[in-house]
Computed example of a mutant assay.
Amino acid sequence: MSSTEPVALRLIDREFLIACAPEEREGLLEAAGYLDRKMRELRAHAKAPGFERLAVLAAISVAHEFIILRKQHEGQNQRLSDGLASLRDKLSAALEGDPAKS
Rank of each mutant, 00 (worst) to 15 (best):
R70C: 06
A55G: 06
Q72H: 10
Q76N: 05
N77M: 08
I67W: 05
E23W: 03
N77H: 05
A85I: 12
L80S: 05
R79V: 02
V56W: 11
A44W: 06
L80V: 10
G50R: 03
R25S: 01
E23P: 04
D82Y: 06
K71D: 14
P49K: 03
G75S: 14
E23D: 14
K38T: 04
N77T: 02
R37C: 07
R53S: 13
R70G: 07
V62L: 15
R40A: 15
V56P: 09
M39T: 05
K71I: 02
E30V: 00
Y34K: 09
A85C: 04
R40L: 10
L80K: 08
V62C: 10
L28E: 01
D82Q: 15
E52I: 12
S61E: 08
L42Y: 01
L42G: 00
A44V: 06
D36M: 05
F66D: 11
A46D: 09
I60F: 15
A48F: 06
E52A: 15
R43V: 00
L57K: 00
I60L: 15
L57D: 09
H45E: 10
E52Y: 11
E41Q: 13
A58Y: 04
E30R: 15
F66S: 13
E74H: 12
L84G: 04
R37T: 08
L84I: 10
N77D: 06
M39C: 10
